[in-house]
Design a protein around this nucleic acid. Sequence first.
RNA 1: CGGGACGUAGCCUAGGGGCUAAGGCACCUGGUUUGGGACCAGGAGAUCGGAGGUUCAAAUCCUCUCGUCCCGACCA
Length: 488
Amino acid sequence: MAEKITPRSVDYSQWYIDIVLNAKLADYSPVKGAMVIRPRGYAIWERIQAEFDRRFKETGHQNAYFPLLIPMSFLQKEKEHVEGFKPELAVVTHGGGEELEEPYCVRPTSETIIWSMYKNWIQSYRDLPLLYNQWCSVMRWEKRTRLFLRTSEFLWQEGHTAHETEAEAVEETMRMLGIYKEVAEKHLCLPVIAGRKSESEKFAGAVATYCIEAMMQDKKALQAGTSHFLGQNFGKAFDVQFQGRDGRLEYAWATSWGVSTRLIGALIMTHSDDRGLVLPPSLAPEQAVIVPILKNDTKAAVLAYCEKVLAELKAAGIRAILDADDTQSPGWKFAEHEMNGVCLRIEIGPRDMEAGKAMVVRRDTGEKTPIDVLGLGARARELLDAMQTSLYERARAFRIANTKSVADRGELLAFYGKDQGEGSGTAAASGGFAEGLWCGSAECEAELKAETKVTIRCLPEGRQEGIAGACCLCGKPAKHLAVFARNY
RNA sequence: CGGGACGUAGCCUAGGGGCUAAGGCACCUGGUUUGGGACCAGGAGAUCGGAGGUUCAAAUCCUCUCGUCCCGACCA
């Protein structure tokens, strides 16, 4: 059984790939570095999208769409931006059989083309704020790719807003970070740390980058979303000036923020197990599957009974299916639905039918409970809710158990082990999150990275007050509390 | 872009100069089954990644090429 999935303890990376492929979430494509998102994976993305999109709209944002291709010269208008993205651009040099006068790049992110348009749309403070978002794909020519986590083309949303004042833009940056955290925790059941990036880790062209960071089961960090305060960098680069209430011209203040299909990778690496995918009920395409136990003499009766149960589940608002295929054995179906991450399995055979019961099995715990078919919808709902809570709590407990406060260099190095090795990714290899004080110098950061591959994931929000003590790297007076980890 | 491994059916693997390229999984047909990945019988599926060369003879040897994976470097 389950020879299809490499256990996490043997090879975490391979386990992850096995889950993605076997649960039919995605597949490798003929295009190097690009993957196909299959219907089962896309269905999850659609549910994630729906949660974000609703909140974007509730906070006043509108969806729009900008071109895939961006004139190369646009990228060059913001110095740091072009430096940051140039190495990973795909460039279009020909069109209609002729060489283009000016090459286009395939968007790696859309700040530049969007701000080139904002110039036309913003003249007065009355035109602000402009709160636009687009759902699209972007392309970054990555040298080394991993399904969902890093592919050359990926799906995401990018919000781009323009504001009258710095304070408003900062507020927007934090509002969106808050929405990311809320959806990550409530729906993806990912406990995340929200915080600010260090200078060296921030977005190319931003004044400040904020992020949410999650811990995967191998104790490595995964950046799950980012929100940038861009200051007036793009306003100036694209000459987006407006006349303010005082009659003076000022450059617009900007933010941008994004989450991508990488979230699906986070979902997998946080909750799934050696049997396959485990999904939070709120995002699972199938929340329950009824597996009938069919025997020759009782087949018709059991199936009819299952149909009634299915109707009751649906009436209770549960996304349920009936697996009536009689060419596969129940055991085969059990394994298959576990692989696919169906939250509840409801076994119904002649014995259950006689007793008016169904055997309900939770995907995350494997717990089996015989439940009266009368009122099954409501009970299933309770189980799904409990599962949603417990996935989050379990992940949170895991993160806490693998987070350590460190006072000095010795403790930090001991926590991560001298040699990073990556251990080809066995779950024990990565240490976890370390919390320590930091002086703020890029040298400390760079040195640590070179030595151990550990980086500052973020400076957690709300914990930066009253910092006193020595930098855990160099011993000089500290300015920040930092969360350290190896990351994806 | 450096180091390594590898391309044989949808997938995994055998065959390393010779006669009809072998097996497992998956697939199709029929039947018996069905409470943790069922069984029997039959069937379909391959110009052995591509090009060139050596040879009476190439999946097999040589050269080139394309591609994939792993490890680095790179990377929100």
